[in-house]
Design a protein around this nucleic acid. Structure first.
Lengths: 256, 256
DNA sequence: GTGTTCGGTGAACAACTGTGCACAAGCTAG
DNA sequence: CTAGCTTGTGCACAGTTGTTCACCGAACAC
């Protein structure tokens, strides 16, 4: 009895129980669980020509696991990706997974870290680049769009798990974003026109900017590849929203 | 899962780690998957005194399935909830599930509809209530907070699946929010001070307001029960953000 | 050169998954 | 009153899951 004979065309939907206790199960595929299908340049198998050091090899398969997860993340939510699936995509057996991570949740937290390292890098580049004052908003949005392009998988991971994922992941991401936002608030304090604002007000403004940025990123991630027109539309709206916020901030008087 | 030391050689026979995040002891402890544990007032079994019409009974178990899903959604992502699990919580067999929905995805779309019906209701109430002009922002935020309280499960579902879920659900939710946002834009046009703004600008402003609102709702959903202080903090910031946006909107001149 | 460490394998386990099929019982229409 | 549709059950099946165990071979430390 093959799988294709099923009448309801619901197709194969990612599924998994888990939650508090650890247990999961997944949809049916054609062949009976092959396990390990090397899509990545031979992480587990002895590499042809090279005799790498053990550290290098370990780091390599570890990264292969992370990358495989990010790749799988294109279709499914992180919480719906199985350990076996990741191991399979990375080209190792499920047992070997445990040599690198304690659990999928552990891997997820590492992924959060890796993703935000990219985001911090973005901020660093932004700060370093000297932009003429009048064009700061345009430059900021451009950097954002550019980095979403470059780190698409990581941004997608963050965007999805920020509110969709399990509690530990969610709170880890929220905290990173909060950190990001408060850094932005201190950056805002450097502008002469905003200098006399109360720090709580600056934080409120920074939160609003971040909310707009998050919204823009989410929209960018939904843009199908090869539609630069939609992307420009989003970019333009985001710029206008930031300008409007700045306009409001300049008028703002704390009513405390 | 895996709270404390996971030491690979630890031979805890029953592999239910049961620690994880705040997970209360689940009833599926000992016996192997009982299926069907009536938590809901007897949907499947012949009800004692009442002889309901077939339609009523069907609608009742259908609602039980939807409610069970919402309940399960507190801990897990929608994509991680299994059909069997829902059926179990609703007190019917997995096969009976198919009498009501084609698949979990089907149920999810119904849930989207149900959730947004509540949101629309909120808007309707808001429009009907005559508020004195000066207090409109405060009143709007108050209504939002109130409805998040009342429809917590639905809001959580939307917030999570908005960016976390599978593609069909995600796009369904996004479209509803877009609709909501454009309605807000036309509402904005009714204010005399904003009347001469271009519709694209009004839409941009409405999108910003929605982004701020979404952010506020997400924060509200993360507030642990019994912490009204945090809730007031969020409410206050949201009000200020809206006021700032209004301030900016009044200054706004389209640069087209 | 030799023993150890360690990243890997493969089989096994019990639990769980979605879904098909045959059947039962009651509301409902005739 | 009777026939049938409808909503449920029970069983089965094949496939997948996380995790453990014993083991292996090559890089490593000495």
């Amino acid at each position: 009895m093959s799988v294709t004979s099923r009448t309801p065309r619901s197709s194969d939907r990612p599924r998994r129980s888990s939650g508090g206790d650890g247990d999961r199960a997944r949809r049916a595929s054609a062949r009976p669980a092959d396990d390990r299908a090397p899509l990545v340049p031979e992480p587990g198998v002895p590499v042809a020509g090279a005799s790498l050091t053990r550290q290098e090899r370990k780091a390599r398969t570890r990264q292969a696991l992370l990358d495989a997860t990010l790749e799988r993340l294109e279709d499914q939510a992180f919480g719906a990706i199985s350990l076996r699936e990741v191991a399979r995509s990375a080209g190792i057996t499920p047992t070997a997974f445990y040599r690198h991570f304690e659990s999928m949740e552990d891997l997820g937290l590492v992924l959060v870290d890796e993703s935000f390292r990219a985001l911090r890098e973005m901020l660093r580049v932004r700060r370093a680049a000297a932009t003429e004052p009048g064009d700061e908003i345009r430059a900021a949005v451009a950097t954002l769009v550019e980095h979403v392009h470059g780190q698409r998988a990581h941004f997608r991971f963050i965007a999805r798990e920020r509110s969709g994922g399990t509690a530990p992941l969610r709170s880890a991401i929220r905290q990173e974003i909060r950190l990001f936002s408060s850094q932005l608030a201190t950056d805002l304090a450097r502008y002469p026109v905003l200098r006399e604002r109360a720090t709580a007000d600056l934080q409120m403004i920074a939160d609003l900017i971040v909310a707009a940025a998050v919204s823009a990123v989410e929209q960018l991630l939904d843009v199908p590849p090869g539609r630069p027109d939609l992307e420009d539309e989003i970019r333009g709206v985001a710029e206008d929203q930031l300008r409007l916020i700045v306009l409001g901030a300049l008028q703002w008087r704390s009513a405390s």
